[in-house]
Design a binder for these strands. Structure first.
Lengths: 219, 219
DNA sequence: GACTCTATCTCGGTA
DNA sequence: TACCGAGGTAGAGTC
């Protein structure tokens, strides 16, 4: 990894056009060739960047980084304050817990947390337009399509609507209804979900993790 | 900005839980206090981070960074290979051109580029499920809801469909129709838009920029 | 390769 | 502040 601190200007031309006026910034070049230009604030996102694969032409006072898609960044170096390189080696990578997949697993194991009386048919139920998170049957024998989100946004409701529309094309399934499950459901998403006739359920991840799976509960 | 290259392990607990095994990484601390841990690859996204505002407790061989929301990162430093600080100063910020907002402004100023005879009612027309990009009236007095996208995807068509559905609930508006405008419209989006009864218009950003606003045109 | 969906999304705007 | 939508979204997984 090469770290250059320099007074510079930057021009990007590609999916849009962007320009950075003269200032002191950090230019980070990683081993895979990607380049990122950071200011001294503004969270982790760089001001400008170019992902690998790309080619870097170093003309001394300016760098031109371009990729096969025709995007290009030009960095004019006006004053280099520091320039260092470090061998970091491969990274073993990040281990995560608590993402949507886990929420989905927990819910599939405890579908009664969504609605009493549900029976799991399957998780990741396949359709032509993508898998439905969870599909159940209710005590009346009706299909219940369940969309699980960490944050219940309007996009998720649309997603559920597409799946329901799809399932209803298959008349052999009979009645199909939708349930939208999330840790937090945004107001607009709730309005839309209810307008679409979907039930909306908020669940607590930590409580869910503490619950016994359905096959151990006695109702 | 402080740049530390060190062999380290990292643990994050907050919106989810994450752990980084021992490896050599770059730890970047910006002037606003935010911390990012980078590997030597994987584009611009850090492996772990903590946004400002937060507090950093430096215990020498370990750092504990926590924020008011209850998120926390613990960095164990096993071997510091480099530690440097640089004064970067404020950044004048990024100047962008060609984003959706510009396209929308240009179109609002030249609605005849969408369709001859339209009169602008307002931009960002408010509804319970979000603002409509542009709303016009046509020569017959009908409402026209216009969704503007840089890239015309299926999501944008769905968005327009939601707005139209919403407007039609208000019978006082009379007839309402939709127009989907983008620089490029994906085939699937076009099919869906036309199935929904929306007109589809492709516009050229550069041509649009060269046009005079409506109040200067003489039709 | 194209498509789909998640994200500690980030970031900006606005009510 | 919370909420909403755009993003050069990026990145992962699947078909």
């Amino acid at each position: 990894m090469r770290l250059v601190v320099a007074r510079c200007t930057v021009d990007y031309r590609g999916r849009l056009e962007a320009h950075l006026p003269e200032a002191v910034r950090l230019i980070m070049v990683k081993a895979d060739g990607c380049v990122a230009i950071h200011a001294d604030g503004g969270a982790y996102k760089p001001l400008n960047w170019m992902n690998a694969p790309n080619t870097l032409v170093d003309r001394g006072d300016s760098w031109i980084v371009s990729n096969p898609k025709g995007e290009e960044i030009t960095i004019h170096l006006l004053d280099v304050l520091s320039d260092s390189s470090h061998a970091l080696g491969d990274d073993p990578g990040l281990q995560k817990d608590g993402v949507e997949a886990h929420l989905q697993e927990l819910l599939a194991a405890s579908v009664h947390a969504i609605e009493i009386g549900l029976t799991l048919i399957r998780r990741e139920y396949p359709t032509a337009i993508g898998p439905i998170d969870i599909v159940c049957r209710d005590p009346d024998g009706h299909f219940v399509a369940i969309e699980v989100k960490r944050r219940g946004d309007i996009d998720g409701v649309e997603q559920l609507a597409r799946y329901i529309e799809r399932l209803r094309l298959d008349s052999s399934l009979g009645n199909v209804r939708g349930v939208f499950v999330a840790q937090v459901v945004k107001p607009q998403a709730r309005v839309l979900a209810e307008a679409r006739g979907f039930r909306v359920v908020e669940v607590n991840y930590d409580e869910l993790r503490g619950m016994r799976p359905d096959d151990l509960t006695l109702f």
